[in-house]
Design a protein around this nucleic acid. Sequence first.
DNA 1: ATTACTTACGTATGACGTAACGATT
DNA 2: AATCGTTACGTCATACGTAAGTAAT
Lengths: 299, 299
Amino acid sequence: MYTLDQVRCFIAVAEELHFGRAAERLHMTQPPLSRQIQRLEREIEFKVFERTSSGVSLTPAGTSFLVESYRLLDRVDTAPRKAKLIAEGRIGLIRIGYTAVSGYNVLGHLLTCIRKHLPDVQVELTEQVTSSQIESLQNHSIDLGLARPPFDGEGIISQPIYTDNMAVVIPKGHPLGQHRDNVSLDEISKYPMVMFSPKDAEYFHDLLTRELGISAKQGKFQVTDAATIVGLVAQDHGIAIVPSSTKVLGRSDVEYLNIPALADIAVELHAIWHTDSSNPVLQHIPEIMSDFSTQSLDD
Amino acid sequence: MYTLDQVRCFIAVAEELHFGRAAERLHMTQPPLSRQIQRLEREIEFKVFERTSSGVSLTPAGTSFLVESYRLLDRVDTAPRKAKLIAEGRIGLIRIGYTAVSGYNVLGHLLTCIRKHLPDVQVELTEQVTSSQIESLQNHSIDLGLARPPFDGEGIISQPIYTDNMAVVIPKGHPLGQHRDNVSLDEISKYPMVMFSPKDAEYFHDLLTRELGISAKQGKFQVTDAATIVGLVAQDHGIAIVPSSTKVLGRSDVEYLNIPALADIAVELHAIWHTDSSNPVLQHIPEIMSDFSTQSLDD
DNA sequence: ATTACTTACGTATGACGTAACGATT
DNA sequence: AATCGTTACGTCATACGTAAGTAAT
């Protein structure tokens, strides 16, 4: 097999079309250069130069081999640097799972931070409920999740990234709208509600039932996706308690009430990842998160 | 700079994760292998292996460098073969200029032959009149042309590829249609004609005026493109004498007359190329042409 | 003690440089 | 005669293998 030195010799001669000058450029004398070329030609089994009376010229195959040689040396040069960048997590891919609600608000800001810190890292996004994200993290089919507690999977690390609060959403013109922002929970309990699913929206479901004492039976529908809940509310299928960030859905057919009973209820979104993920991009999560937390998310 | 031998050593150890076995696979002993890896690590300035008590493992950067190494060695392996194939004209690009009429018929068959002989050669097609093809050949902006004589450019080589004949084209329902295929030239001269342009369709223009003695003045329009001529005939702007291969245009609003006066008029299409084209694909023109000539073009 | 990688040292392959050679203008 | 690439030959660097060393189980 031929060597990189031979390729470098070849390129020099091909560029100079003169063994003497090429040797000079390579800080060597003609004879060993000549031998290197001969050896290269023996290894690759074709002549790269035509040695005529009037000088040296590339053969057709040599001409083609020259461009291949450039590419080869380029790869030789970039391979270690690229490997280092990959290992440092500065280039590569990060696959992120996110809950639908986080997509309304937090995700965009997170992507901005990622872009800022790691401009050459590709991002792949998949909408997934929390339980599915944990499974994917353990499969190693995603690298990072944006999810709601609890995280009971093995090896899952979580860090709070954003705190939202809950609000009552009612259809436009609903009687509760009259009292604006000063409604008690008891009041609300009189109306049928669209509830979060206990399975795929465990966090919100438990929050409503446990923390607020709302009966699951009050819900005529059990829905996973907050956007769907708001949609059902708009179409008069009940009222609901949803994260405030659903406001960015921008629906004009609903109203939000920031009632006192919900004022102290904080709903947390966490970034989660797996301890033994091999993706080097995750190294930068701390710096990205700390940058993220300095930004205002209000809109 | 690191060497390919070092890369091969690295791959062996990375695959075995064991210096001893890797050395065995490389038909050498552990010490020099160990030194090769050390040297590699010194050259690329990062450690590729973690030497722990419990054995050898790849560092993150080493893991990335492994995939780069595979690609590198792959290129080392393919570069000479690729160069040889390019030089032999078995892979690469051939840029072909063709006249509009040749596109109706000959071009397709030629491409079939090229595909058959040179399945891995890409073909780029540009419609050009003969004079423009010659210019492009001299510019080296095309490699091959399909054109009509004469070829008076410097260094142009031509070879006949297809012989067509001329036919009278008349609009459907035209009085000449009654006599079907038994019309004299004199008869035709009574009707206004759509003529070929003397500049961009020199070959056909000269054929009609010189060989058949048709006066240029008989033409109300002078047109470059045969398809346009047939279109104008269809719309009753005159009759015309055009190559028979325009029949493949498939227009039902015109009729063709194969009159005796045109029976012996052969119109030739040539493949043309330039002596000092550097495109190695042209080496295969002879074989392609001889294969082409054994095929029937009638449809 | 054994296993496995690294360091030390002597040997040999091979790459360089000088010198001589051959071919062309 | 001069230029330029190749062959011949002696020297030195580099890479190998053997042997000894070191660290961990």
